[in-house]
Simulated scan of single mutants.
Amino acid sequence: MESKKIYQTLEDRENPDQIEQEGPFPCSWNNSWLGTGHYFWDTFIENAHWWGKTRLDNKYVICEAHFNFCTTTCFDLVGKTEHMLDFERSIGLMKTKKLLNNKTTVARVLSYMQNTLKIFDYKAIRVYGVHSKSKDLQPNYQMKFELGKPQYLDYKPAIQICIYNFSGLSFKDFTIVYPYDYVSGYVV
């Protein structure tokens, strides 16, 4: 089990006390990538800033928290190959039942795994949204493997964690870390 630092980016509604008292907050957008849950950026605060700048028009708050990351409670599509294979097998089952088409999303497959197959009983999920950020973004945290070739290492990838159920995750220390004038003890 690993204690993991995560960041939630929220719209700045000039309510820092409410954020720290009532947060974290769930996302229930119709197009939520992983379904309804509490979305966080894994490890890299730069991704939380990127989201705030691009999706929240530079009016955002970042909160930091910690939780116990373990692949028995978190379905890890970033680092656990067995989970990737489970996901692939679920897609295969959906294909055989003609439930898969070019409009099927990750959230739909996860819902199928949870509600139909009954094999998804995880409290959280971890994914890497490939091509989430533009290659032209500066800084881009990408390093080519070979000059003149398109392949690269993204050393601060846009990894998200969506927490569906906090019980047993030892979630703690949810606190504002940006903007600095909302940070407890900040002096001008």
Rank of each mutant, 00 (worst) to 15 (best):
N47W: 05
S134G: 11
Q18W: 09
E14T: 03
K135C: 14
E14K: 13
W33S: 13
L100Y: 15
E14C: 03
C70R: 11
R89M: 12
I119R: 02
E64I: 10
M84A: 11
R89P: 01
T36S: 11
F67I: 04
R89W: 08
Y7L: 03
A107W: 05
F40R: 15
N30R: 01
V127H: 08
F69S: 06
T81L: 03
F40Y: 15
L110M: 15
T104W: 00
R55G: 07
C74P: 01
I62H: 04
P24A: 09
Q8F: 04
R13W: 00
V109N: 07
C74F: 02
K80N: 14
H131R: 10
N115F: 01
Q21E: 12
S28D: 11
F25S: 08
S28T: 13
T54S: 13
G52C: 13
T96F: 09
N115M: 00
T81I: 00
F120S: 08
F120H: 10
C74S: 07
F44Y: 14
L77A: 12
F25N: 05
G35P: 00
V130E: 15
T104L: 06
F75Y: 02
I19W: 01
G79P: 07
F40G: 08
L85A: 13
K103S: 08
E88K: 13
Y112W: 10
N102H: 08
I119E: 07
N15P: 02
